[in-house]
């Protein structure tokens, strides 16, 4: 960025950001185009992307198998940009097993497929309680699991990002993929809620 542009920036943090971006470019670490592309990826990501993956997995067993083995590859098959993003892992809910994702150390989140994390995901309360009292957390979300369900809390501590493949809700037999994607929310793919069909 040219020096003249810096004078138009209002806050110290704006100036610091511009300086860092200038240095990264000058030292050849990343190009301005790469930064721009990454910002576009992050801004365009939203929970609808993850919901598309879930809906496809519900109707296509081969895609589901790919998604559970390699979430990054499955996302790319649906045209979701994953280049430069952390590897994506997908954990499948099943009768008797429910997954809940948290990052106790910071706020790791599968942004490529779910977009920006909701505010509560980053809160100290959710991060502390999800590992210590997940049943209590789910109860506050009014999420009711069958009594014999094992809850498995996935603490996202390192290089992977994790999303949940929820179970397909009853009452959706014969639905199109688009319609199925419409019932899948961000919370369902973190595991605080379950997809449901309103009658």
């Amino acid at each position: 960025m040219a020096a003249a542009d810096l004078t138009l920036l209002r806050t110290d943090s704006d100036r610091l950001l511009a300086a860092v971006r200038g240095l990264l470019a000058a030292k050849g670490i990343v190009t301005p185009e790469e930064i721009k592309e990454r910002i576009r990826f992050v801004d365009e990501a939203h929970p609808g992307q993850g919901a598309r993956m879930v809906a496809r997995a519900w109707v296509d067993p081969a895609f589901r198998a790919t998604m559970l083995a390699d979430g990054t590859k499955a996302a790319e098959l649906l045209g979701i940009p994953m280049r430069g993003m952390p590897p994506l892992g997908v954990l499948e809910n099943a009768p008797g097993l429910h997954h809940l994702v948290v990052c106790t150390l910071c706020s790791c989140y599968p942004r490529a497929v779910l977009g920006y994390p909701p505010f509560w995901f980053k809160s100290a309360a959710y991060r502390a309680r999800a590992v210590r009292d997940p049943a209590g957390v789910l109860a506050e979300w009014r999420t009711v699991l069958p009594a014999d369900t094992t809850i498995r809390v996935v603490d996202s501590t390192a290089d992977y990002r994790w999303m949940v493949l929820p179970m397909r809700p009853p009452g959706t037999e014969g639905w199109s993929e688009d319609r199925l994607a419409g019932v899948v929310t961000e919370g369902d793919m973190i595991g605080v809620t379950l997809p449901h069909v309103t009658a």
């Binding site: 009292d133 209590g136 498995r152 996935v154 996202s156 501590t157």
Partner: peptide, 8 residues
């Protein structure tokens, strides 16, 4: 309390 945990 708690639950099963899966951690990297």
């Amino acid at each position: 309390g708690g639950a099963d945990l899966l951690v990297e």
